[in-house]
Write a protein that binds this DNA or RNA. Structure first.
Lengths: 109, 109
DNA sequence: CTCCAATACCTAGATAATCTATGTATCGTA
DNA sequence: TACGATACATAGATTATCTAGGTATTGGAG
């Protein structure tokens, strides 16, 4: 499956990039935000999220900075211009994938 | 990600079950059929397909039988009643997943 | 005051879905 | 006669995600 390997990771990454495209956020907040905005469908684990954030930062799609809030330190992530490019690309890919699945299974193509 | 583990395998399995729900087919044919009906998006590898077919048969979602055609032996797969139940379930799950992603990314929800 | 849940970060190792690579064999065609 | 297409299959690599564990702070319930 050519598109799927990308999409597996892609479906998580696209969600992260999308919410970070609206405003900067810290890890824990991202989990809650994605859970809420997906009506409880996406329950991302911390063990899933943090390694992905590190990877995206290493690839230059995100930038981060620490800040303090009530004695707790938070690491805020912002999307970069490169990240925005990737988001546009991933979004196209998602639509392509979604359309293809719906075409095959004949479910609201 | 609670739904995703299911969906990764699910997105492949749902495609297979869908086309087998229309008529019985053999492995090689399934690859071509899914490739065509998805407009070239899903290029399933034999190394991906055959193990999945064996698993689905072992789980009782599919049945198979050998037949001969021009000296080549083909293994035809049919969907079982259990398989049809699973297909309905998987389809619901797909719609749920698709809707959730589209809600979050705001792409034709 | 003490314990526990929630908040907030992190990593190592396990699990599992898919791919790569390889093997066998037949058929049609250039 | 050599090669691509057809047709099946499996072993091992890759990699995305999960499980399970770790640290530390805050706030509220008992």
């Amino acid at each position: 499956m050519s598109i799927n390997k990308e999409l597996l990771k892609g479906s998580t990454v696209i969600l992260l990039l999308t919410v970070l495209n609206k405003r900067e956020m810290y890890g824990y907040e991202l989990i809650k935000e994605i859970e809420q905005s997906s009506d409880g469908v996406f329950l991302m684990k911390e063990g899933t999220l943090y390694p992905i954030l590190h990877t995206l930062e290493a690839e230059g799609w995100l930038e981060s900075s620490w800040s303090q809030h009530d004695g707790r330190k938070r690491k805020y992530y912002r999307i970069t211009e490169l990240g925005k490019d990737q988001l546009r690309e991933k979004t196209k890919e998602w639509v392509r994938f979604r359309t293809a699945v719906d075409t095959v299974i004949g479910e609201g193509g």
